[in-house]
């Protein structure tokens, strides 16, 4: 049983790294870090030093601190949007898949309509209407990702609902809500968790993309997309200004995907055993 062993294995690396990311980004405001907005025009493009490990940017701000806060902003937006999308999308998908008939028709057609809009276009529309910033970004990104959760949940429910154990719970007199959320939901959690990981990763990219275009996080607040955007302009003088946020973005997505992959395996009670015939 791998779950109970305390030995550090390579499988736990993503979990440890993600925990580190989360702790640092959550505690960023209380950690003894410099203000990410503090400018020091005398030290523009300064090379790494003891006080500024990654150097300073075009306004003399500490790059490491800005990266940490950028990751924090990214993760807040990504997780908030993914959780919102996951809850709404899954609920819709489970109800559609379980009740069939009219509910299914309405839910799935609604999803089809949402799917018609390209995500980036939808986000740009909302930002144009309501102005940029995280408060607009989170619900917009959530709406963009609701359909994928609904589709995954719907398809999984269709295969699980015909299983005998679902019939068994129904024959015991369980209510529909109980069957849907305490019997079916845990059994379709695997694909949904993978979908969640995927969504968080894609949301991070999308958020960065929108910020890069100036439609997401507003300067001077730090954001990976914004940093990449400004880093591009000063590529000739200070290439590392572009390299650091890109590397951070890539690493974050890799960690998220690896972690969720591993999580899916662990959540399955059968994974630690080879199934018999």
């Amino acid at each position: 049983m791998t779950g109970t062993s305390l030995k550090f294995t390579s499988r736990q690396i993503p979990a440890v790294l993600l925990a580190l990311l989360l702790v640092v980004s959550l505690l960023a405001p209380v950690l003894p870090l410099q203000d990410p907005l503090l400018m020091d025009t005398a030290a523009r493009f300064a090379a790494p030093s003891g006080a500024h490990l990654f150097g300073q940017d075009e306004f003399g701000r500490d790059i490491l601190v800005r990266l940490i806060f950028a990751i924090r902003n990214s993760l807040i937006v990504a997780f908030a949007a993914a959780i919102l999308a996951g809850v709404i999308g899954t609920a819709l998908g489970v109800m559609a898949g379980y009740s069939r008939g009219l509910t299914e028709m309405l839910a799935m057609r609604f999803i089809d309509i949402v799917l018609c809009f390209p995500p980036l276009l939808l986000a740009m529309l909302a930002v144009t209407l309501y102005g940029p910033g995280p408060v607009t970004l989170i619900p917009v990104l959530a709406i963009v990702f609701v359909p994928s959760f609904t589709r995954v949940a719907h398809a999984s429910v269709l295969s699980v609902r015909s299983q005998d154990y679902v019939e068994a719970v129904r024959s015991m007199g369980a209510s529909n809500a109980r069957v849907m959320f305490s019997t079916i939901l845990p059994n379709i959690a695997g694909p949904l968790i993978v979908q969640f990981s995927f969504t968080v990763a894609v949301t991070v990219v999308l958020e960065s993309g929108l910020s890069f275009l100036g439609l997401g996080v507003l300067p001077p607040a730090p954001s990976l997309g914004l940093m990449i955007g400004t880093g591009r302009a000063t590529l000739a003088q200070a290439p590392m200004l572009l390299v650091w946020p890109c590397a951070a973005l890539t690493a974050m997505i890799l960690i998220l995907n690896a972690f969720c992959d591993d999580l899916r395996d662990r959540l399955d009670p059968k994974s630690s055993k080879i199934r018999g015939q």
Partner: peptide
């Protein structure tokens, strides 16, 4: 009710 397939009629979770 008891079902035919004992592998399918118990919730694996």
């Amino acid at each position: 009710m008891i079902f035919q397939d004992p592998f399918a009629s118990l919730n694996p979770r």
